[in-house]
Simulated assay, not measured.
Amino acid sequence: MPTPSSEDKDELFLSCRYGDLEDVQEYIQKFGPESLSEIRDDNGNTILHMISGNGHTDLLKHLLPLVSPSLLSTSNNAGSTPLHWAALNSHLSIIKQLVLFPSGPGVDLIDIKNSAGHSPLAEAELAGWQEGAKWLVEVMNLEAVTEENGTEDVGETDTVDPNQDIQVEIEDADGQVAKMTISGSKNE
């Protein structure tokens, strides 16, 4: 297979930014998937940053199996991952794909902080995107958060009523506290 030129890589990058699946497929057919994980812009953004920030669900679904799983946690020059960009731009289907991708880092992506000290959860909160913040809280590793904050996990002898609402408070790196209620199932 031929080696892609700088121009070919730039065109692929733009195709990812604008969600042009056909152009991306043509690139892969011509050059193979090997170079996909190496392409960066001047700010250190990857193709996953472009796709995630612009909400291109179909393109992400097509490319995730073809790129290195480490690309999901790759930070740009500002320390932001593709998940930060998806959270900042309120793309729920994208954050779900990134976090739930079987070969990827999973929920650990939620704990990565950018240069401003913000996690993807903090970016969702700062953007006022409650739906995304709620989903991230529901799937994140709360055991690590509770150990970090010095509070106890529910032990074997403690009981939790599954119909009871649970209040969750999470403090981000800036000291801002997000409060959320996770509703129990109320089958009456």
Rank of each mutant, 00 (worst) to 15 (best):
D58A: 15
L60K: 01
L63I: 11
L64F: 07
P65D: 11
S68P: 07
L71Y: 02
L72P: 11
S73V: 09
N77Q: 13
P82V: 02
P82K: 04
L83E: 03
S90V: 02
H91A: 01
I95F: 02
I95M: 02
Q97K: 03
Q97W: 00
L98Y: 05
L100E: 15
P102N: 07
S103R: 15
P105T: 01
G106C: 15
L109K: 08
I110K: 05
D111C: 06
A116Q: 09
H118N: 12
P120N: 14
A122L: 08
G128T: 03
W129K: 03
Q130A: 07
G132N: 00
A133I: 08
A133W: 10
W135P: 06
L136D: 07
L136N: 05
L136R: 03
V139K: 08
V139Y: 10
L142N: 03
E143S: 14
T146I: 07
E147I: 09
E148N: 13
N149Q: 13
G150E: 12
T151G: 07
G155S: 10
E156D: 06
T157Q: 09
D158L: 04
T159A: 13
T159W: 13
V160F: 12
D161K: 12
Q164L: 08
Q164I: 10
Q164Y: 04
D165Q: 02
D165P: 13
I166F: 05
I166A: 00
Q167C: 08
E169S: 12
D172F: 10
